[in-house]
Design a protein around this nucleic acid. Structure first.
Lengths: 110, 110
DNA sequence: AAATAATACTTTGTTATACTATATACTATG
DNA sequence: CATAGTATATAGTATAACAAAGTATTATTT
């Protein structure tokens, strides 16, 4: 599926919050997870810009430490503020997706 | 509902296509329709930028003529290319909304 | 008759987000 | 020892919704 970029705006960020909410993780792994979920065109650069943004806004706590394989990693966890934001995100999603599905139902010829 | 702006990107345009698909209409009326549908914060400026964009891309045909109430109006209809785009839009929407709903299902504590 | 509201369109600039491209650096593998 | 894989970072670009202002006509209110 292509041409999803514009539709992903405001959504990808929430999906990342949701991934971090499932447990401590890091950028590289989040990108792989997004790709597995079906967001197949997402590249690392996108994930890192999102993570930086979310951290700046105070939704994520970070810890830089050596991983099992000897490489440095920046680990992210969702803090209280981030959990609030995640809830707000899903509320927005519910609202918007209902509106869109209503519109689709009213579709001509279908 | 507020803070919807970013989430609406790539969606509002499709909803406008869908509205025009229902029959010849014009900018001002489309804004009222969007507001009635629940996109309550959409203002005229937004609709007109979308319409101009869609027209430039060749999805809409236009006709400027006097309305019943004596005011000039720019009427829009969806052409063949626009109908194709509308179909593609709903395909994208189906794809993305499934991914998002899957993510939501996997949610921790919910 | 004058003021205000409603109808109708347009454009310029701002902001936010995903994406591109590139760079760095270390580890594992062939 | 070159290549692939793991891991992070960032500067620049494209695009879309939105804000704000303006123009002009018609309808309604005072």
């Amino acid at each position: 599926m292509d041409n999803l970029t514009e539709m992903l705006k405001g959504l990808l960020e929430g999906v990342v919050l949701n991934i971090v909410n499932r447990g401590e993780t890091y950028g590289y792994k989040i990108t792989r997870r997004l790709q597995d979920m079906g967001f197949s065109d997402v590249v690392d650069g996108t994930t890192y810009t999102i993570l930086t943004r979310l951290e700046k806004r105070g939704f994520l706590d970070t810890q830089r430490r050596l991983s099992e394989n000897g490489l440095m990693r920046k680990y992210y966890t969702l803090n209280q503020s981030g959990k609030k934001e995640l809830t707000a995100f899903w509320t927005r999603w519910e609202y918007i997706s209902k509106l869109l599905n209503n519109a689709k139902k009213e579709q001509k010829n279908g």
